[in-house]
Design a protein around this nucleic acid. Structure first.
Length: 332
DNA sequence: TACACGTGGGA
DNA sequence: TTCCCAAGTGT
């Protein structure tokens, strides 16, 4: 039964193969470990639609891990700007330099796992897809597919991994890994799964219950607090004063408008040029843009007509856009 | 173990 | 508008 299900799963993947820029065709191994690594890191918590063009830009600019390792921190962080989860970019830099120093990627899950930004899932994905190791890469897609297949409300990582490995064929583990993820992304979706199109329809315990969507059970979402912050608008001769944020923490290492610490309290008695609302994973923010005369911190003058070259994360890109819209009105 | 860590698109 | 959430990792 299991072997048949796996065969059907992979056949469905081959028949519906989505030609994504980082993929080798099914059956072809090994894939370029640099491309597999870069795409897997970009895809952490990020959609295929968002990643695809960015991936193309990265490999065009830095075709090899050695090229990436030779780039400056600022170049790479700017290239990452807008993708989010910037610790990934910081780890990407450290990982590229370590891999270049060693002369290539390690080839096993265990050794890949030691590199910065490569955890349990990504190490397994690279090992399976680029090096043909027979190992289960358990992301949320695989977790959901396996949980539904076996009718498990609670998804224990180790149990899921064992069940996935049990189902995995001996040949072409990378195809199986990608087939599972594709099934989760396109058929076995969190909501409104397309069970009538699923190659595992006849094997699925969750479907047999009549409510496959209920598997696995999701924890309730935590309440998201709201905060406020100030951003200082310092302009001169068509240039705006920017700073680089501290290397760790939220938006760590990224270009930014200078400003205050963020707090729970709404600022009062403030002349604001613009206020932008932005939602982070664990809180939302109103950033109030307010004029200041002189720079007080270490930073640089960024020409406003070349603002997209600054590598601004979305929060500050939005804030500057809103400030410019109002600024232009005031200046008329 | 639980929390910090971004963003944009779809329902 | 609001909520959900997408190929997780580090601490």
């Amino acid at each position: 039964m299991t072997a048949n299900a796996a065969r059907r799963l992979i056949q469905h993947y081959v028949d519906n193969f989505r030609r994504l820029p980082w993929r080798a065709s099914p059956g072809n191994l090994p894939a370029d470990p640099y491309r597999v690594w870069l795409s897997e890191v970009m895809l952490q918590q990020t959609t295929v639609a968002t990643v695809a063009p960015r991936f193309e830009r990265f490999v065009a600019r830095w075709p090899t891990v050695e090229a990436l390792a030779a780039a400056s921190d600022e170049e790479i962080l700017s290239g990452w700007a807008g993708l989010g989860y910037y610790a990934r970019a910081r780890n990407l830099i450290a990982c590229a330099r370590e891999v270049a120093r060693r002369g290539g990627f390690p080839t096993t899950t265990a050794d890949l796992r030691k590199l910065p930004g490569i955890g349990a899932y990504t190490s397994a994905a690279i090992a399976a897809i680029a090096f043909g190791e027979r190992v289960a890469a358990v992301d949320t897609n695989v977790e959901r597919v396996i949980a539904r297949l076996h009718g498990l409300e609670r998804a224990d990582k180790a149990a899921i991994s064992a069940l996935a490995l049990e189902m995995m064929p001996l040949e072409h583990p990378g195809d199986f890994v990608q087939a599972m993820m594709d099934l989760g992304a396109t058929i076995c979706r969190p909501r409104a799964p397309r069970c009538h199109s699923c190659p595992l329809e006849s094997d699925c315990t969750a479907l047999a219950t009549g409510n496959p969507e209920a598997f696995p059970k999701r924890p309730p979402r935590a309440v998201r607090p709201h905060r406020h912050g100030l951003a200082f608008w310092i302009v001169r001769n068509g240039k705006v004063w920017l700073v680089r944020r501290p290397p760790k923490g939220l938006l760590g290492g990224m270009a930014a408008l200078p400003g205050s610490e963020w707090s729970d309290a709404q600022p009062t008695g403030l002349q604001t040029i613009a206020t932008v609302h932005h939602v982070f994973t664990h809180f939302s923010l109103d950033l109030h843009v307010t004029a200041r005369g002189e720079p007080e911190s270490h930073g640089w003058w960024q020409p406003l007509d070349r603002i997209e070259e600054a590598g601004l994360p979305t929060l500050y890109r939005k804030a500057i856009g809103a400030a410019l819209a109002n600024h232009d009105q005031l200046a008329v």
